[in-house]
């Protein structure tokens, strides 16, 4: 599932994410910087070893929520374009789970917007991760009230 609006691109995919391709989708000519977050699957969480992750989404709502965040980011920060792709399904250790790229005329706004976007994505976008261990598995629950 994907959507383009203005210079922005957002997608949910079960295929591996090509980081450079996502970042380089957005190179408006009035921009001088792209800040890209590469979120990937961690092997050790508080000392416990994860074998792999499974991500699941309420896809139609997740796309809507991501679009809302991108529109809010444009209101809050002096940025030009955003590209967000989240992976779903089974992910191995080290694989990219989420990419957020923000293009801006100057880097400071791009850094700030990227940080704000990942924080809000983790809080509001209906996507869940299951950590699978040697001896069991657990759906991780966020801390939103």
């Amino acid at each position: 599932m994907e959507k383009t609006f203005g210079k922005n691109y957002i997608a949910l995919t079960t295929s591996p994410i090509d980081l450079g391709k996502i970042a380089r989708r957005i190179t408006p000519e009035n921009c001088g910087a792209i800040v890209t977050l590469d979120g990937f699957v961690r092997r050790f969480t508080n000392g416990r070893e994860t074998l792999y992750l499974v991500y699941e989404a309420y896809e139609s709502m997740a796309i809507k929520e991501i679009e809302r965040l991108v529109r809010q980011a444009h209101e809050k920060f002096f940025i030009e374009a955003v590209s967000i792709v989240h992976r779903l399904g089974k992910l191995e250790i080290g694989e990219t789970s989420v990419v957020i790229s923000v293009a801006a005329p100057h880097r400071k706004a791009a850094f700030e917007a990227c940080e704000w976007l990942i924080k809000e994505l983790k809080r509001t976008v209906p996507i869940w991760k299951k950590e699978v261990y040697e001896d069991g598995e657990v759906w991780i629950e966020g801390d939103r009230q």
């Binding site: 991500y55 709502m61 994505l121 976008v125 996507i127 869940w128 759906w139 966020g142 801390d143």
Partner: peptide, 10 residues
């Protein structure tokens, strides 16, 4: 109506 636990993407 969707019923789910607090989200944990990213």
């Amino acid at each position: 109506l969707a019923i789910f636990t607090a989200v944990s993407g990213g």
